[in-house]
Nucleic acid binder design. Sequence first.
DNA 1: TATCTATTATTAACAATGTTAACAATAGAG
DNA 2: CTCTATTGTTAACATTGTTAATAATAGATA
Lengths: 205, 205
Amino acid sequence: MDFMGAIEKRAKHKKEFRREILDAARDIFISDGYDGFSMRKLAGKIDYSPTTIYLYFKNKDDLLFAICEEFFEQFSAQLNNIRSVSQDPVETLRQGCLYLMNFGLQNPNQYKLIFFTKSVYGSREELVEKESMARNTYLVFKEIVQDCINAGKLQEIDVDVIVDILAIASHGVIAKNIYCVKFSKERSDIVAHTLVDVLLRGLQK
Amino acid sequence: MDFMGAIEKRAKHKKEFRREILDAARDIFISDGYDGFSMRKLAGKIDYSPTTIYLYFKNKDDLLFAICEEFFEQFSAQLNNIRSVSQDPVETLRQGCLYLMNFGLQNPNQYKLIFFTKSVYGSREELVEKESMARNTYLVFKEIVQDCINAGKLQEIDVDVIVDILAIASHGVIAKNIYCVKFSKERSDIVAHTLVDVLLRGLQK
DNA sequence: TATCTATTATTAACAATGTTAACAATAGAG
DNA sequence: CTCTATTGTTAACATTGTTAATAATAGATA
């Protein structure tokens, strides 16, 4: 691609092109993971030079952050949906945990990026401090736990500790699935369900 | 360092030098983590050229693998020790879980390398299939769980599922600590203890 | 209409990475 | 004394993320 080629590319509007880059980046990211992703590969896919991307995103992390935020949007919406539908708070919590796990199992690369890479969310102060869809999702989850406490269903443990425990456990299942090649989908499901059962059994009065 | 300089370095024996590289590598690794580690940095520290390292280790992963194995040696020994001392099997299991968590919290970089990086243990077929200290440690942990089952203390759940659940949960606590900057030592301890309590409460009959 | 400026693209380059190829020089075996 | 294996080295390659310098157009302004 030379300067003559660039002339034909001038028509696109900023927002549309940003969208296009994002979509291409997500495709690469989903199929090749964090390690397989590179700015040059992305540039090749959208048929632009690598530096062009820097006109639309500050750097690699900024781009990956945008991708993750879109996933959290989806996640947060679904979590809210679960909460509004269900009646029994403990059952809602169970559903929420299972959905969290399932979400991670379905989107390992994004989950990996979000939780197992400091560069994107970690380096940005702290997930909880910065306004983000990731933070929103966390807060919705916390509300679900608080509902259970308000209903007098759980042992008297600090709500934040309970949230951590449940998130951490879900976390672990997904990590196991990501990093253990031989951990099958069926196996993951069994372990996920059993783990949630054990946790809720241990948490309830 | 030129060829003349190399002459003075010829005296060292293979094994000793391998040891020396390993120690230097571990130092860098502990202080700078996986991302901060590089073959060139290591070469600079031991005052040899980068290529020399390749005479003693196949590649970067091979070197990091060796470091991790040494940590597991330590870990496995301590786990065996806990098992031989304690009488009550459930209490042994509790100690084992807490030790696992504590080990991870104390050695975040190694833990990260072992469990959150496919390149070292993951790419080597599978941790469970290959003979390694990591595998030994796993087996000791499994025996502790089996002791509890044999004593009739736990619900009737497959031993491998229980092992996974406990390992996964411990895993999660450590991951949280590694990737959340604001997750303090005190907080980690509270969550770790509460999590183990909840799990054992949920697992027992 | 002519010109100036901001935008959008490019190429070239830098520094860092893991790793390999080619080469040098010694130690020890025959 | 000579040959060979061992143990080093330098130079180079192909990546990576990112920045600097530059070109060319679109749109605003005179």
